[in-house]
Design a binder for these strands. Structure first.
Lengths: 338, 338
DNA sequence: CTTCATCGTCGAACCGGTTCGAAAGCCCTG
DNA sequence: CAGGGCTTTCGAACCGGTTCGACGATGAAG
């Protein structure tokens, strides 16, 4: 590769002149600029990113940290990756994707070595072990997912409590009096996935307010356990007419399971859920659902992060944003019979 | 952040001594090393990646290029991302994930600016537009997917022709005489996805050799078109007893469709397919299938790439590796009746 | 006809590492 | 006890950019 020195020599100017021609930070005569541009084209020059980063202290790279847990459902997390990547590129940033199983160490690795200008954290849990590291390093960050201590952090997440209330409202309005809720697997709660109980508590409280009977369970994330658990739950509550599924793996398997049982939707059972539009299309899911808006969350996190990076002093106080849920009616519910 | 100069001052030695203590490239006395290590710990020093890359011309970052086509099935591609990322990390590399819709430009951007030491290309097509750029830049690369011109490139891909032959053999051995094949959507062929015709040709030739009747179709990638196409294809061939599905989106939707038609597997229809173990688990797919081994391909590509990077002169000639298929019997086939 | 901005360019310093050559201190040998 | 070899450490150069201060040329103002 050619360097800025080669270009300077080729154009008969100094290195600094080439640099200014590139950045436009000082005036350069039309004639010189043309010579430099020709030299750049002829030599195929592209500035060395490391050298530039060294001096400017800006890498134009964002870290994207995500962990894959063996017993989890990968497609759900991957939904966020693409929007984040695209949003970043539109703002001039590349994405360093880190899937290191040791999250805290990885945070230090990419931040302390100044490989990135900022960090997006995916699937943040209540007492996320990455947060102490994140606070220790001096890099802006944006989280997708709600930790219990939000101090000083930019956070965006779906308003899961409100989502649950909307779905309960929906069933209540149709006259259902006994409903079942399937949450994510219990080990997600143990790991501190706060969206589980935010949704769960929201649903239970709302149901209580209406005097609805609600049976709340934790589901599974893998076959064949999924089928077994759904069967057992449905068997236990033959009178329930509404089902709320807050569990990606379960909802993906649900059409098959219900068909096998001969349960018609919505005639025998009204089903509502929570997933993103893309997810629903990929798995051909026909359920009325709250859109989880992975796109929105990803784009918002990146935008907020870049704002923090570019005007670090006056980007304002940290913001915790709960994206309001939107319900999308796909006809999988109907008025309760009788 | 503290620099190597701060560490040096704190430990009362020169910068070069710290550097040698870190790299171990020259002997350092036990006592000095201890002082330096203490200083590093106290200051929390981590070397600046950009500065290091500038001098060593090694970034310890690999580019991972993937494109998402709006009308395609995202989970299939994402299967490769995680194994690549993990394999890279095990070898000491981080991943710069690039999803830029303008692939060729992106190749130049990350390669010419020396942001990466090498590049992994996913989902390579016959006349992949990224290849000219890739050959122009002076960076090692590893491809997953087979282009028509393989000159000078390290390539790994599943042996799709052999996979097809194995599946045809499997059905033939069970006595099936009339079978149906559903390939990926036709636009994938137009885009140059060579795995489509490698599989298709392999199946057709093999069937011809046995005198099997085979009806080959291109499927769809999105609902509701998937269901319509499957219905139409099955309606057109009521006597067919075997079905080969080489189409991720279709196979994911297939259990539901067949159930709705009242078609029992394997009693009414023997079904075989091609997908990865993870994919099968995520979608709860019960079909006998060739394992597509996304893990293997990803890990192999990274390993080969790193070999190229670290011993560039003598890493040997480019290798094109076809991973042999492995069939995994899940009981979705049976001997033809009558 | 000086004086003073302004414009366009240059040279040098700097960012934070790595690495080469040399030097200082020590021990051993003849 | 002078000379040679080791071990350990240092200073300086270098990687490829950016940026600051300065300088010569030009034109306008006094």
């Amino acid at each position: 590769m050619s360097t800025i020195g080669d270009v300077a020599k080729h154009a008969g100017v100094s290195r600094s002149t080439v640099s200014y021609a590139l950045s436009g930070k000082r005036a350069i005569s039309e004639e010189t600029r043309a010579r430099i541009e020709r030299a750049i084209a002829e030599l195929g020059f592209t500035p060395n990113a490391g050298a530039r980063a060294l001096k400017t202290a800006e890498t134009m790279v964002l870290g994207l940290m995500l962990e894959f847990h063996a017993d989890e459902f990968a497609p759900a997390m991957l939904q966020y990756v693409l929007p984040v990547s695209q949003a970043a590129r539109e703002l001039g940033y590349d994405i360093l994707m880190v899937t290191d199983p040791d999250g805290p160490k990885a945070v230090h690795r990419i931040a302390d070595s100044d490989m990135v200008d900022g960090i997006v954290l995916l699937d943040v849990t209540a007492a996320d072990p990455r947060l102490p590291s994140l606070r220790a390093v001096r890099k802006p960050a944006a989280l997708i997912g709600l930790p219990s201590d939000t101090a000083g952090l930019d956070i965006v997440d779906l308003d899961f409590g409100e989502a649950a209330r909307m779905l309960v409202d929906h069933l209540q309005a149709l006259g259902h009096r006994e409903i079942v809720l399937i949450s994510p697997p219990h080990h997600v709660v143990e790991r501190g996935g706060s969206y589980v109980w935010r949704f769960r508590d929201g649903a239970i409280e709302r149901a209580a307010r209406y005097g609805l009977q609600i049976h709340a369970y934790y589901g599974e994330s893998r076959q064949p356990a999924i089928r077994r658990s759904v069967e057992a739950i449905l068997d236990a509550h033959p009178a329930a007419t509404g089902l709320i599924v807050h569990n990606d793996a379960t909802v993906a398997a649900l059409p098959t399971i219900l068909r096998d049982r001969g349960v018609g939707v919505p005639d025998d059972l009204s089903v509502v859920s929570l997933y993103s539009r893309d997810f629903g299309e990929e798995f051909s899911l026909p359920f009325t659902a709250v859109e989880s808006a992975a796109d929105d969350l990803g784009r918002h996190a990146v935008a907020q992060l870049v704002r923090r990076i570019t005007r670090s002093p006056d980007a304002g106080p940290p913001v915790v944003r709960f994206v309001p849920p939107v319900i999308s009616d796909r006809g999988s519910t109907r008025h309760r019979r009788r």
